[in-house]
Amino acid sequence: MKTEFEITDNILIAKLSGEIDHHEAADIRSDIDGTYAAFKKKHIIMDFSGVSFVDSSGIGVIMGRYKKTAENGGITAICGCSEYLRSILYMAGIFTIVKEAKNKEDAVKLVKRLEAAESGEIFQEEKEAE
């Protein structure tokens, strides 16, 4: 399945779709890493709302992206997780390193707020959306 990308300020949003298993994970990883490097963005948001199946390779995809953004001083956030995906991610303790939001819009707000908090600024409610 093709991963779709969207860019908001310095955030790369990857909308994943289809089934994520060990086989698909390899393509997803290189797609995200390639786009992240090409557009020189800081943060990554992974949207799982279009994903119908995930096994433990999904954990690897998230962990790997977390390391990439962390090297860059960025944040990795995920959104659109089903109850079932959450249970798998919980097993691996993913929520201790990655932020979770309900949907894409909330995830963008969350990342901006965290970034502002880090740099000591006060977050202004979405000065210009999109």
Binding site: A25, R29, D55, S57, V61, M63, G64, K67, S87, M91
Partner: peptide
């Protein structure tokens, strides 16, 4: 970095 090592844990749960 890319392998979670959670395969058996997932199967067991």
């Amino acid at each position: 970095e890319e392998r979670s090592g959670m395969g058996f844990t997932v199967m067991e749960s």
